[in-house]
Nucleic acid binder design. Structure first.
Lengths: 237, 237
DNA sequence: TTATTTTTGTGAGCCAAATCACAGTTTTTT
DNA sequence: AAAAAACTGTGATTTGGCTCACAAAAATAA
């Protein structure tokens, strides 16, 4: 039997580099060079990939899986800042502004990463300015999201905030189904709460509300069916 | 009488480019080329430099003065996202991810800007990767600040948030004086409130509190004397 | 499968910040 | 300098989300 997927080390490497938006502008030959610089690693669910305060010496790119980036606040809670998945990168702050990690990164499921050492990455940057551009793009997008989050947090429209995350997850992991978009939530209620600065209880209550309005339907704890995305988008507006 | 400051057009240009961190790595010859691409403009207090939703076609760098970047929220309020001053730039989102402006930018005082057209800027970027690096640095710093803001907004420690802005303004505009650090506030109470997601009244009350604790002293409406910066930093922690 | 652990939903009461209201200041304009 | 406009401080009240508490459900382990 012939496997449709080659599992040799080399091919996986290549696939990995191809999947990553920041290398999307490179030619096949250039990509090959990048591939040679990459090393890989796997993490199981719950494993810490980066510890706040530590000195990371690589840019890390997610090949498959999902992670959360979070901080522990004074009052012992965790504040989730990002949920990264396939193709996303992190650790750039350590390389670009030479700063220790400002957040923990933890695998939310089995996760495979590609990493490039600082020196290699910096060399790449000067040799291929297009990579820098891609990174700037992504940084701009992150700024955009954080700006929106802050706007939402300022105006205390709590339901809009919840709607925003649901739509974000729907874009990333939503699957069209007959009755709407089925979304596998990467975070628990507690996680969602920490992501948008609320308590677990409030998230619960607001989700129930959205369900009663016929906008969503909860499927177990980890899935949500968005039945009326138009209405949800209006809520967020 | 000989003026210590040359006011000819050319010199001002040069000064402008020199002052800007993102060009700090360029040689004098390279700088000269950049200078030739720059055009300048002045705005009076209250004037809009960028309108949300419009298509900006230049990177704008502040030569002197101060501006606020803000959005109008659904409920008619304004959410201030950034206060930019000398050496800061904005409009990069329009150039890098080809997006319409996501916020208004308004001069808080008489403000002079330097601007570089999109095409010129993109050419610069590919010719001098170091400029890209500088921009990435700044984007990382902004992400950093927003991440901290979000953390502060999540954990509802309101006084810490106020302390953070005061310290931010102190770093930017603080002047050492006998009794402490005298800070000229770029924003009114209302502005500060909008910057940290509170109401004007709450900011007022908390400022009074800090004053009663002997940490700060308000000097008219637009200045604050930080009498005990150690204590203020502790409040923030 | 059953048992165990983790996660979730929901009521009751509390509390800090929002809102409303208005007088007193400060700043700007004329 | 006087008048107008903008901004600020502070009391009274309301409110929406937080906290606490516990039962129910779901996910995981045995």
């Amino acid at each position: 039997m012939i496997s449709s997927k080659c599992n040799c080390d080399r091919c996986q490497h290549e696939v990995c580099a191809r999947r990553v938006p920041i290398f999307s502008t490179l030619s096949i030959e250039e990509l090959q060079k990048v591939v040679n610089l990459i090393y890989r690693r796997s993490y199981i669910k719950g494993e810490l990939i980066v510890i706040e305060g530590s000195n990371l010496d690589s840019l890390i790119i997610i090949n498959s899986g999902q992670v959360k980036a979070y901080r522990d606040t004074q009052d012992g809670k965790e504040q989730i800042l990002y949920v990264f998945s396939e193709g996303d990168f992190f650790g750039e702050k350590n390389l670009i502004i030479n700063q220790a990690a400002t957040y923990n990164v933890e695998a939310l499921e089995e996760t495979n990463i590609c990493a490039i050492r600082k020196e290699d990455f910096q060399k790449l940057l000067t040799e291929h300015p297009s990579i820098g551009l891609k990174i700037m793009e992504e940084l701009c997008n992150r700024l955009d999201r954080l700006e929106k989050t802050i706007e939402g947090m300022g105006s205390k429209d709590v339901e809009a905030r919840l709607g925003m995350v649901l739509l974000e997850f729907a874009r990333k992991h939503g699957k069209e189904s007959g009755e709407g978009i089925l979304v596998e939530l990467p975070l628990s209620r507690e996680g969602i709460a920490s992501y948008i600065g609320l308590t677990r209880e409030t998230v619960s209550r607001k989700m129930t509300l959205l369900q009663n309005q016929g906008i969503i339907e909860m499927v177990g704890n980890k899935k949500v069916l968005i039945k009326n995305i138009k209405l949800l988008e209006q809520t967020v507006q």
